[in-house]
Write a protein that binds this DNA or RNA. Structure first.
Lengths: 190, 190
DNA sequence: TTCATCCTGTGACGATCGTCACAAAAATCA
DNA sequence: TGATTTTTGTGACGATCGTCACAGGATGAA
């Protein structure tokens, strides 16, 4: 819970009263490795603030898993599109390690936000961070080659490399597993 | 102005009082073709609601232009990262046609939002739409090949193809101009 | 109209990538 | 510990891509 408080205060001013109003919307929850937080076809009604562990979002296309995002401690994982619009989710979110999260329930969150503008503001900042992250990784593909994308992750998100296997990362970077292997090889020879 | 009202009402309940409070934050503005709305190195202090025309965001890497987004009528263009954090923008936004926009001034917008929760909620929805769009195009690269990406644009965003030249689109899809030409050729022969 | 500019198509060629296959290494678990 | 599973590396090969170069067509301005 402490982690969440720090996260909130890093984003916006937040009074004890607002916190008391927010409280009913929050639940701590744990997931085993490979357990689903959100399943394709379901409507996403939660924000998952990650306390410990990490999870990923992935599509299944023609039976193949395509990773689209990784989410670590002190980040929020969700399907922002489904959460916002009420449409069914097109992808899954799954725990990659034993996972502890604080769940924001959408309906209760909205009720609380109507009573405290600070909560509404918090929500806006959470979505803003989410949008910023999406933009960052989206631009990776438009600006850089596969090798440069790997280098970007290595320099800007080294923690991701330490926790995510090369195979998992490959799909996130939009290339074959073997390609990342060869990029490493090419570099070490030069 | 009518377009903006429709846009707002499509997102959230909005009273005449809120509108009156929002009004001071809004300015109508026009740009010539190739005129910059936001320049690399500047801090983004505006949301640009597009009334007529379209614009694009682009990076300049090694003197080369890399398009990262196109924004059309009834959408909001901005650098969400710079707007939210106050950091300098890493990219430019430029009018691709004669452009008419309604500018939301950040500071005045935040003042207004403090007085009317509906405005805060509106802001949240605007960012949400922005995040959803980012996510959509980000996933294009993780899920699809260049050919499938082109087909996605053709079926889901046909209007974009009609207004954006193939050369401009290529950079947005992360491939060379010639590649899109050849994809077209390959398909027509089969 | 004429000129300049922009956009698209295309050929050639080398580089990179995806796929398939298999082996080695590492991690996991009983 | 040993057995199983997962992950990584690598070779071969065909497909695709990026780059360079050039030509033709479209567009727009003088």
């Amino acid at each position: 819970m402490n982690e969440l408080l720090q996260y909130i205060h890093s984003l916006t001013a937040f009074s004890p009263e607002s916190l008391a109003l927010l409280q009913p919307a929050l639940t701590q929850q744990t997931f085993n490795k490979n357990e689903l937080l959100l399943k394709e076809g379901q409507v996403c009604r939660s924000l998952f603030f990650i306390v410990k562990g990490y999870c990923k979002s992935y599509y299944e296309v023609d039976g193949l898993v395509k990773n689209t995002g990784f989410f670590f401690e002190n980040e929020i994982a969700t399907n922002i599109s489904s959460f916002g619009s009420g449409q069914k989710s097109e992808f899954n979110i799954v725990a990659c390690e034993p996972l502890t999260v604080i769940v924001f329930d959408k309906e209760k969150l909205f009720q609380a936000a109507q009573q405290a503008p600070e909560i509404e503001t918090l929500g806006r900042h959470c979505i803003r961070l989410f949008a910023t992250k999406q933009e960052e990784f989206s631009n990776l593909f438009k600006l850089y080659s596969p090798q440069e994308r790997l280098e970007y992750i290595e320099t800007r998100h080294p923690a991701m490399l330490q926790r995510v296997s090369l195979s998992q990362l490959a799909s996130f970077l939009g290339v074959a597993r073997e390609t990342l292997s060869r990029i490493r090889k090419r570099r070490s020879h030069v």
